[in-house]
């Protein structure tokens, strides 16, 4: 079983690394865009799945990452790496503001507050002189990464994006499994009890907001570099809706489920493009059937099936053995 898992992972990794050499099979720019959405969805899920906070304003972070990076690289002439960092930090700072205001309420009211603030941010990018309004911030130079790697080449860019997304996902995974992540789960499960154990819940929420926003911003920043464009629809509330959709499709109670959701949504919008306006209808139908068939999401359901299988295999013999061992130790 474990061998199978590792084989699947290894084959997947090799396939991903080989992508830029087979542009006739899959378009590398599309894969890079999907990477950005994967990071976006997993970062968003730090709030929804792991802390139990529904934000309806994550487009503001994604869009801010894109615009701030674009502005720094194009108008201030910053190197690309610093531009990405600036986009991420700006989004994180915005996350602190959103978080500090929104967590005064919970549930649907919290979602409405984040939506309202995200709309303010959207109109800022619509009106601000540097953003190019409906045209977007165009012709962002890709530049070089760390002064060494020329990002004008799609192949180099691909590996840099791959590396950054992998690092971002590692941060998500680490956060979820850290002592801090354990407190987040406690807040999700029973907030008053977390308070009664002495945890200053508000500060935890603001910090996780900042983390989630920062990583979402990084995803937006990379999208701006890949397409050399920061566009209004990056900050539009549709984007906030899309990321919720991806997360729920993939499974919000898993660490990487949202990644699967991101791939699915991204692939549907890409490959179903010839159907034009029908794409929305198709995505809607897929979403409905997913929610009706497996409420825990694609990965959540898959995990349950696999776990059931492993339980059958291991429960029969070794479990009592383990129990005896722990007894003799104690």
């Amino acid at each position: 079983m474990r061998l199978l898992t590792w084989t699947v992972l290894a084959v997947g990794l090799i396939a991903l690394l080989a992508v830029p050499f087979f542009p006739q099979v899959v378009y590398p720019i599309f894969v890079m865009k999907t990477f950005c959405f994967i990071l976006f969805a997993c970062a968003f899920n730090l709030l929804l799945g792991h802390t139990g906070i529904l934000s309806f304003g994550h487009a503001a972070f994604f869009g801010s990452g894109a615009y701030i990076t674009g502005y720094c690289v194009k108008y201030l002439g910053w190197p690309t790496d610093l531009g990405l960092l600036a986009g991420m930090l700006a989004a994180a700072a915005l996350g602190v503001i959103f978080g500090a205001l929104a967590i005064r309420r919970s549930g649907i009211y919290l979602a409405m507050i984040t939506l309202a603030m995200a709309q303010l941010v959207y109109f800022f990018y619509l009106q601000a002189p540097f953003t190019g309004a409906e045209d977007g911030l165009q012709q962002i130079p890709r530049g070089t990464f760390l002064g060494l790697l020329d990002l004008r080449s799609d192949i180099t860019l691909y590996y840099v994006v791959f590396g950054i997304v992998a690092a971002g996902l590692w941060v998500v995974w680490r956060t979820v499994n850290s002592p801090f992540g354990a407190v987040l789960r406690a807040i999700r499960e029973h907030e008053p009890r977390a308070v009664s154990l002495g945890y200053p819940v508000a500060r935890y929420k603001v910090l996780v907001f900042a983390l989630s926003a920062g990583l979402s911003g990084l995803a937006g920043s990379m999208k701006a570099i890949i397409f050399q464009l920061a566009a209004l629809n990056d900050a539009h509330w549709h984007m906030s809706g899309d990321v919720i959709l991806m997360t729920l499709l993939g499974g919000m109670n898993t660490v990487f489920g949202p990644a699967a959701g991101a791939v699915l949504v991204s692939a549907m919008t890409h490959y179903l493009d010839p159907f034009g306006a029908w794409v929305t209808v198709i995505i809607g139908l897929v979403f409905m059937s997913c929610v009706l068939l497996f409420r825990e999401g694609i990965v959540g359901k898959l995990g349950k099936i696999l776990k059931l299988n492993t339980n059958f295999q291991t429960d029969a013999a070794p479990a009592p053995g383990r129990l005896e061992k722990s007894k003799s130790e104690g």
Partner: peptide, 16 residues
């Protein structure tokens, strides 16, 4: 979760 409170405020999201 209760025991880890004793370590202080555990905002260490980078720790294993």
């Amino acid at each position: 979760l209760a025991l880890q409170r004793g370590r202080g405020e555990s905002f260490d999201f980078w720790r294993s």
